[in-house]
Design a binder for these strands. Sequence first.
DNA 1: ATGTGTAATTGGTATATCCCAATCTTGCCG
DNA 2: CGGCAAGATTGGGATATACCAATTACACAT
Lengths: 257, 257
Amino acid sequence: MSSLVQPARPEPSARAKSNGGKSERVRRHVLQTIDAGLGPHDRLPTERELAEQLGVSRLTVQRVLDDLTTENRIYRIQGSGTFVRPTRIAKSMELTSFSEDMRSRRMAPGSLEISVTQEPAGANLAALLELSPGSPVVSIRRVRTADGAPICLERSQLPAELVPGLSAEDVSGSLYELLAERYGIQIDRADQTIRATVLDPDDASDLEVPAYSAAFEVDRLAVDHRGRPVEHAVSLYRADRYSYQLTVAVAKRHGTG
Amino acid sequence: MSSLVQPARPEPSARAKSNGGKSERVRRHVLQTIDAGLGPHDRLPTERELAEQLGVSRLTVQRVLDDLTTENRIYRIQGSGTFVRPTRIAKSMELTSFSEDMRSRRMAPGSLEISVTQEPAGANLAALLELSPGSPVVSIRRVRTADGAPICLERSQLPAELVPGLSAEDVSGSLYELLAERYGIQIDRADQTIRATVLDPDDASDLEVPAYSAAFEVDRLAVDHRGRPVEHAVSLYRADRYSYQLTVAVAKRHGTG
DNA sequence: ATGTGTAATTGGTATATCCCAATCTTGCCG
DNA sequence: CGGCAAGATTGGGATATACCAATTACACAT
């Protein structure tokens, strides 16, 4: 339906530095390297190589790579290397599970009407989770509450092999905490698409609001630190109880290029 | 109407480091210092002082302050000091003006039905812009377009003294670029609250969609690098043409504490 | 009282160096 | 062939040091 759009791009406002700092040179070099031949998940030269090639110290290279990591254009794995992120999406913000989110407002998170089922993955979902089509997937459906009032209708799907023995009682609380504690899976980041929408009568009923009320629809793909997809989720948030507040800032320290 | 909620909080997932790295110690110390007695815009000890007090190198302190800057908990002014940010809101993402946003998708940004008026500030607006009530404020109303199609209805308000001689012809393009080029005002960051809503018939008509269609309402307060409020704006985005896509990530390198 | 220039202060950038931790490679042994 | 251990590779963290750039404070001249 909607044409997906990204809110930001690594094209900072004009702020050319006359001195031509070395960091900028390194940054440009790395970005050119990426834009030139490198595809997603390709490996960049090592920090030590870049430092030597460009005639700067390794720490300077590290700073630049730190920035690019913050901007989600690359990721690093200690002992392995530095790699190109697939799509360069917006900037990072802190990952929020529903439970953390609510607790930070001193509200008690909970769940209603939990169902946990297992089914074979369709083509789309299989692609998202990097499974073969038909692989078993665990589907979790929950109405999330804060202090008992419904806030969010959440449908999560995970590869069944990652969560053996998962039952409905397990997911009355935080799914991410459960993943970490029982299955040793650390969610590292997630790509989210947020849309404004209106609720169809069924979903509205579950959230206890009138049909066609305004809502956020959040589509999320969460991955662990190695980039392995762990969870696909679609959440519907009541607009009258939930809004996004955030601070946006122009990028620091990167010249125009 | 809606209870404002923040999507994130600086409470990273449990990831205690056993070694007790120095960065963590410094981070904790700084955060405690802030939480203890310091209020908004109070000055923190200098980098050199912190380094000496905590027995670490200045560079280590700088890294920690870099992180806290990224997290929008502090800000730094070269030659002056390091200061506490007012409210600790979510994480930063790149600031996007509508024009930049559209160009990054290779769509041509434009404006329709521009009106520029001047009026005295009411109490609320005056407080937001840190003016005395009744001070003159320039109001800009625009229907923003991408490739000619209406996308967003935007109402901006700026202190009149900041933009002398502003006329309707001036704001057919990017307001932020105009501020930078003609008035030397660099927008540094903005606090935004994003809500899901439905369009009332008037606004829907301006955006050429049916009444009560879904939309994003973005409430923005933009400030320059010294924290001086420059613009207050309320924007309504067509949900069928616009969605937010972003990558969220768990915070790096900060232990649980 | 007002402006002006200089010096001190404070954050910004960069270097060289060291060791640690996670990962990957290689080769040996069963 | 499989598995495991040692070593090389690679990012992570920290130090000491030096100089630059923006801001502020203050003494001084007008």
